[in-house]
């Protein structure tokens, strides 16, 4: 029954949209964790949600408003040269306040704002799928080139500084990719579900993978497995998708932590 629902044509578009995001967001999360900027995901997601709501109020697709707001935040962060989680704390607060104030003062209303926070993947439309496919394509195209540079900037920062390499430009490139990923993820599956996909698979992979290559592969695989289980469970148990995905990923993290700790003496 669960499997047949997974392949129900009614949910096919949502399934594929979420699958793409479940493979891409954890990889972006691994890089954010490497830079100790995983809170960025939550900052971008809050601003994206506020931007999506503002876009809807002006008749734009939610994903367009979200990408614009999160992208502007990434550019502002790059221009200010501020790295670190304090910047993202301010983004979260600003995005949260803007989201609720826009919701309370526009026709799109609080309900849509609530939907962006809670997430309901089954209502994802063609625009969401196209955006997710574009994100996947951009990530596959850009990240292999960017990855060694980001790794070197993190692990051997003195090399790039001594040779005058444009590190800030590379970091801005990744920030824009992460911002787009969070905006598209938030519009499709909700703020916390997108954040969980960025944080939890990478958290497990960072502790268990034998190398960086396996960290990236493991993060994507955990994201996809967690997503498919959540998708089927939410349909079968008639539960909202966003909280189900967060719960499944937390169970995976808890299971890993228990196994890693080993049997009690």
């Amino acid at each position: 029954m669960v499997l047949s629902e997974l392949f129900d044509p009614l949910f096919r578009l949502a399934l594929i949209d979420g699958l793409l995001l479940a493979a891409v967001l954890p990889v972006l999360g691994a890089v954010l964790m490497l830079r100790d900027e995983w809170l960025a995901a939550l900052g971008f997601a809050h601003l994206a949600a506020a931007g999506a709501l503002l876009g809807l109020a002006f008749g734009l697709p939610a994903v367009a408003g979200g990408v614009a707001a999160a992208g502007a935040a990434a550019i502002a962060k790059g221009a200010g040269g501020g790295q670190g989680n304090a910047v993202y704390g301010f983004m979260i607060l600003g995005g949260w306040a803007a989201l609720l104030l826009i919701g309370a003062n526009t026709e799109v209303g609080e309900q849509l704002g609530r939907a962006l926070i809670d997430g309901q993947l089954y209502f994802a439309g063609p625009a969401d799928l196209i955006a997710a496919a574009l994100l996947g394509g951009m990530t596959a195209l850009i990240l292999p080139w960017l990855m060694p540079r980001l790794l070197r900037a993190r692990l051997l920062p003195q090399h790039d500084a001594a040779n005058g390499y444009p590190v800030r430009r590379w970091q801005l490139g990744f920030d824009l990719l992460a911002a787009a990923g969070m905006a598209i993820g938030t519009a499709s599956m909700g703020l916390m579900a997108a954040f969980a996909l960025v944080l939890v698979p990478a958290w497990i992979a960072f502790r268990s993978a034998p190398s960086w290559r396996w960290t990236l592969a493991g993060s994507a695989a955990l994201g996809v497995v967690g997503y498919l289980v959540s998708f089927a469970a939410a349909l079968a148990l008639d539960q909202p998708f966003g909280p189900m995905l967060v719960a499944v990923l937390l169970v995976l993290a808890g299971g890993y932590a228990a196994v890693a700790r080993g049997p009690a003496a």
């Binding site: 790794l151 070197r152 692990l155 051997l156 003195q158 090399h159 040779n163 190398s211 960086w212």
Partner: peptide, 27 residues
């Protein structure tokens, strides 16, 4: 002229799932 520079204390993060060979690769 290209430079390579080793600082007094290497960047040691925990956890850090990057192997020594991967470090040499990016360098």
């Amino acid at each position: 002229l290209t430079l390579a520079m080793q600082t007094q204390v290497p960047v040691r993060l925990a956890p850090l799932p990057v192997t020594g060979r991967e470090l040499l690769g990016v360098a």
